[in-house]
Amino acid sequence: MRVLVAPDCFGGTLTALEAAEAIAAGWRRTAPADELLLRPLADGGPGFVEVLHGALGGEVHEARVTGPLGHPVTARWLAHDGTAYIESAQACGLHLTDRRDPETSTTYGVGELIAAAREAGLTKAVVGLGGSGTTDGGAGMIRALGGHVTDDTGNPIGSGGTDLARAEVVELPAVGITLVAASDVENPLLGRHGAARTFGPQKGADPAAVERLEAGLTTWAEVLRTAGQDVRDSPGAGAAGGLGAGLLALGAEFTSGSALVRTLTRLDEALDQARLAITGEGSFDWQSLRGKLITAVAAGAADRGIACLVLAGQVSVGRREAGAVGVEQSYAVAEHAGSVAAAMADPAGALAALAADVAGQWSRANGR
């Protein structure tokens, strides 16, 4: 039986490739005769460059850029067929912060990566959004590309999201490269589902900080509107702490990260060959149902009349909700291991052990 193994990354524990290999290793223990098709996935967040390099080939470049808290970090980006694939989390990711401070963190390094791609002669940059530790509305990226953000005295404002409340004027740069924003979410910039209120707490913002960030982004939206770029209600503007808004203001096309990766990794061709699909991520929760990779794999499987299983670190989605997006059954690594702590002690081993048990239930080689 051909089994498609197509997971996303598992939070900060396993990359998508590591997760796919762990699932495959466990499955083979129980069902060695099955043919496994590995297609690790990413929706624009962490793992975007690694996954696309594995699927497309191309040349991986490294650059020293400004990290989210101002310290230098090494970021990798992919060049393939005239296009740069940039993973914003490599420059401003939450995992790069030894202290979570969304009020002062910056996307400046993302702009430096775009500039590096431009200087290398590429004509297009696809920027994957997700996993950021920032809430600066993309203002840092705009400055790195030659733009200016000033207060009412004409002086530059500070680097963080809270400083945006002092913004009065933005001078947008001529980027010189076609931009595409590949987002894992469609959240707007402001409001209940916006960058500050939805994602700020995950980045360390307490309720007071969330309101300061919301105020800063509200001012930023007005400044961008005055500059001729009204992105306040644009889908995806709230992605990566409002980095989506900054990209849209620079003329970026917005696209679904999961749909893009689905195409570039030839996921549908693999689904055509499979008789069972397995996907997964760190937490299978309500956000997983909002256009993320699990729904792309499940929908593709449902279209072909094959079952789709989810192996996740933790599962909080009910069976009915999962079934509505095409997921036949979901399994939690933490539950199988006995606790979250046990699963985290050996993420790859715990995931492999779960996969071995699931293979016993689902592989035709084992009587299903």
Rank of each mutant, 00 (worst) to 15 (best):
A307F: 05
S256G: 09
A270D: 14
P173F: 11
R368F: 12
I86P: 12
Y108Q: 07
I294A: 14
Q329E: 15
I278C: 09
C9N: 06
V210W: 07
R76H: 15
E87M: 06
L250K: 12
G160A: 10
E321W: 05
A116I: 08
L113H: 03
V210H: 06
F199C: 00
L289C: 09
R192Q: 13
A332Q: 07
L190M: 10
R64P: 04
A324Y: 10
Q273T: 14
S88L: 03
V231N: 03
A196K: 00
M1Y: 04
L17A: 15
L264Q: 11
A365E: 13
R290T: 14
A89W: 00
A209V: 15
G140W: 00
P32T: 03
P156L: 01
N187E: 03
T106F: 05
P188A: 02
V3R: 05
R275V: 11
A120V: 03
T178R: 15
D151H: 05
A208N: 11
V358Q: 04
A337P: 00
A139V: 11
G282I: 09
V325N: 02
V170S: 08
V340S: 13
G147L: 15
D357K: 14
A63Q: 13
L94N: 03
G200C: 12
S234I: 08
W77N: 04
G242P: 00
I114Q: 04
V180M: 06
S88N: 02
P201C: 03
I157W: 01
G45P: 05
T255C: 13
V126F: 03
T279P: 13
R192T: 10
D268Y: 10
E35T: 15
T295P: 10
G26C: 08
G58Q: 07
R197I: 01
A55W: 12
L36I: 05
G131C: 11
G121A: 04
E281L: 10
A274H: 03
V3G: 01
P201K: 06
D272S: 10
L247W: 12
I294V: 15
G137I: 08
S339Y: 01
A341Y: 09
L213Q: 04
S132D: 10
A42Q: 12
V110Y: 08
L267P: 06
A352Q: 04
A298L: 07
S339V: 01
